[in-house]
Amino acid sequence: MSHEDIDHHVRIYMRVFAALVVLTIVTVGVSYLHLAPGPALALGLTIALIKGSLVACYFMHLISEKKMLLWVMAISLVFFFFELLIPMVTEGNNLHMGA
């Protein structure tokens, strides 16, 4: 990687950092609005998802990474969602969906 490439990267890091700070402020700010549980969850998780993707894509360079690593992470993400959702769905008969 040449020095110009690195300089370009550094500029991106700074922008991502700024975005992360702003989004953190937003997520805290929204929590003071005391939205209903449904919308609050959706909004909070969406912001977290955006922040997480920024970290993964730019700090961890996933956006320009080799396809093989993307496949590994994609597979584990698929199973990650199975882990999160299926236990809940399976117990669907016995659950109280309100927060």
Binding site: I86, V89, T90, E91, G92, N93, N94
Partner: peptide
């Protein structure tokens, strides 16, 4: 979850 049929999961699952 085929190890868990008798835990009372719903028929859909």
């Amino acid at each position: 979850a085929h190890h868990m049929y008798l835990t009372g999961m719903g028929t859909a699952m």
